[in-house]
Design a protein around this nucleic acid. Structure first.
Lengths: 184, 184
DNA sequence: GCCTTCATGTAATACGTTACATGATTAC
DNA sequence: GTAATCATGTAACGTATTACATGAAGGC
């Protein structure tokens, strides 16, 4: 299960409360990598504490508990991160699924959808670029490096999808038989 | 739930049995977009049939049932495909999660991991490129267009990750203070 | 005083995976 | 005849989402 490793990783970068971790999942992490709500996070933190991989480092006001990884937790995380990419890695992406099913539509609808994808990816990429340039303030402290890597990753991925959509649009204009013979 | 739409989409491209659909999920679809095993697929097909979105078009040997979408199913699929990308789209990608957590590692381990990512993406992209060039035979019939779009998508995405990893590796060499002042 | 944000949890339900189970057909 | 592949299903378990529930602290 990857939620445990996601939590382990976030806590290894910087100790945090369940509440703060929940917000992290609402940002880039949940957008590109892994989603989780607070109702999964709190029980999972308790399980991890039970297994001795994290521990409550500090208790603040309003019952807030700041968790930190233990040395055992750090070991477990490192093993998982350095493990070569296995075939059985979990992948689930609704947006990509839509793209794969495009050929179920009529050519007009396909064009409509690809155009909308091209526009959306360009727009979102531009937004991220803008926020990356303004977000020089290292307000979020230790996790600012995380934000830069994530932002850069997001932009590059969006650009790739954008260009794929544009390519697919030009492909739509080429009749089937021309394509197979003209293939480079 | 997206599994139902995945099945609807595949059947809209070409009628198929649960067994054939299962194999589809073991290929590009499961690799980049959505995973599902036969134990989810068979019950889901029955549910879809119950809702009148698909129907058994033909019964073959060994109890094989070929499903096809009904007009209602096609409507439902079209609505879903053309719906603008909502914020709540499901995303779950173990590989990307690992990348996001890289900063939890020591610089040496980070370098190790990024190098391995760069190598793996290059290798896999090359494999797909090779199989795309040889796979001109339209053996799989109606779904060959699906394969081309998917292959192209996969290659572009892998290239993007590859370049991101290479960029991240060069970033590792730049000390923190230089980076913020030299940012373009 | 009231609303918002902070902060954590449980319970019911839905969804997905693993293990179990069965039988027909084809290839050797 | 034996193994592999085709073909479908159920049951148990684990994981995730939605709804429900509670209370403290801070801003206005």
């Amino acid at each position: 299960m990857s939620l445990s490793h996601a939590l382990l990783g976030l806590l290894a970068i910087a100790p945090a409360s369940g509440y703060e971790l929940t917000k992290e999942f609402e940002r880039d992490l949940g957008r590109y990598a892994w989603q989780a709500g607070h109702t999964s996070i709190y029980p999972e933190l308790n399980k991890l504490a039970g297994r001795g991989l994290v521990h409550v480092a500090h208790e603040g006001p309003r019952g807030a508990k700041t968790y930190d990884v233990t040395p055992e937790g750090r070991d477990e995380l490192r093993t998982w991160l350095l493990r070569p990419p296995g075939e059985g890695a979990v992948v689930r992406n609704e947006q990509v699924l839509r793209m794969f099913l495009i050929s179920a539509l009529t050519p007009e609808d396909q064009r409509r959808m690809l155009t909308s994808i091209a526009e959306n990816t360009a727009l979102t990429a531009a937004e991220i670029r803008a926020s990356m340039e303004s977000e020089d303030e290292p307000e979020r402290g230790e996790r600012s490096g995380f934000g830069r890597l994530a932002g850069e990753f997001g932009v590059r991925q969006l650009d790739a999808v954008h260009e794929w959509a544009e390519w697919a649009l030009t492909e739509l204009d080429i009749p089937d038989r021309e394509r197979s013979s003209a293939q480079a």
